[in-house]
Simulated scan of single mutants.
Amino acid sequence: MRWFKRGVGVLLCTYLLALIFMVMPMPGSFDAYRPDWLAIVMLYWVIALPHRVNIGTAWLLGLLADVLLGSTLGIHAAAMAIMVYFAARHFQKIRNFSLSQQMLIVLILVLLKRALVFEIEHFINNAPFVWSYFLPALTSAIIWPWLFLLLRKLRRQFGVS
């Protein structure tokens, strides 16, 4: 119960939901458009609470994503850490942007993450290039305003600081 008072429980629940949404079955035609849930949840928390959520958190969650997705261990961890680094470095500027400007930032950062994952996969496993691999960056940016408002409401309701 003390965890929820300090907000750790809320953070862990949102991380767990993001990981579940990453592997939740979807129809084949929609799977290419699946948002990068873990990336956008991490971006929100890094922008909202940079003193509590940082590159180390991104690295650990990236390792969990590697295990869940069955990819080479460390690929998503490294990409998440790099993506979160840029968000954490400029969190004060990003906070002051409007939601539409934040959507553009999210699009760029998720594109960066996905490009890093692709490049490492291509180098290690000779993965073929497919344009649809970058579609989740677009859907992540589209979902960002609703996710932002929902997580902000949760943060304020549970007093996460």
Rank of each mutant, 00 (worst) to 15 (best):
M1F: 12
R2C: 07
R2H: 14
R6S: 15
G7M: 14
G9F: 06
G9K: 02
V10G: 08
C13M: 13
T14C: 11
T14H: 08
Y15M: 13
L19P: 04
I20E: 07
I20C: 07
M22R: 12
M24C: 10
M26G: 03
M26A: 07
P27L: 10
P27G: 14
G28C: 00
G28D: 12
F30V: 12
F30C: 09
D31F: 14
Y33G: 05
Y33M: 10
D36N: 11
V41P: 09
V41E: 06
L43T: 04
W45N: 03
P50V: 02
H51A: 14
R52Q: 09
V53C: 09
N54M: 07
G56D: 02
G56Q: 02
A58S: 01
A58E: 02
W59P: 01
L60E: 05
G62H: 06
L64F: 15
A65C: 10
A65K: 15
D66S: 02
D66T: 03
L69R: 11
L69G: 04
L69E: 08
S71G: 13
T72S: 13
T72Q: 11
G74V: 01
H76A: 12
H76F: 14
A77W: 00
A78H: 11
A79S: 03
A79E: 02
M80Q: 15
I82V: 08
V84P: 04
Y85K: 05
A87M: 14
R89Q: 12
F91W: 15
Q92L: 11
K93C: 00
I94Y: 03
S98I: 00
S100D: 12
Q101K: 10
L104N: 02
I105W: 09
I105K: 00
I108T: 04
L111K: 04
R114I: 15
L116Y: 01
V117I: 02
F118V: 08
E119N: 13
I120P: 12
E121L: 10
E121K: 05
H122N: 09
H122G: 01
F123L: 15
N126H: 15
A127Y: 15
A127N: 09
S132E: 13
S132M: 11
F134W: 15
F134H: 11
P136D: 10
P136A: 10
A137G: 04
A141P: 02
I142G: 05
I142P: 05
I143T: 13
W146V: 06
F148M: 11
F148K: 13
F148R: 15
L151Q: 03
L151M: 05
K153T: 12
L154K: 01
R155E: 11
R155F: 04
G159F: 12
G159E: 13
V160E: 04
S161V: 07
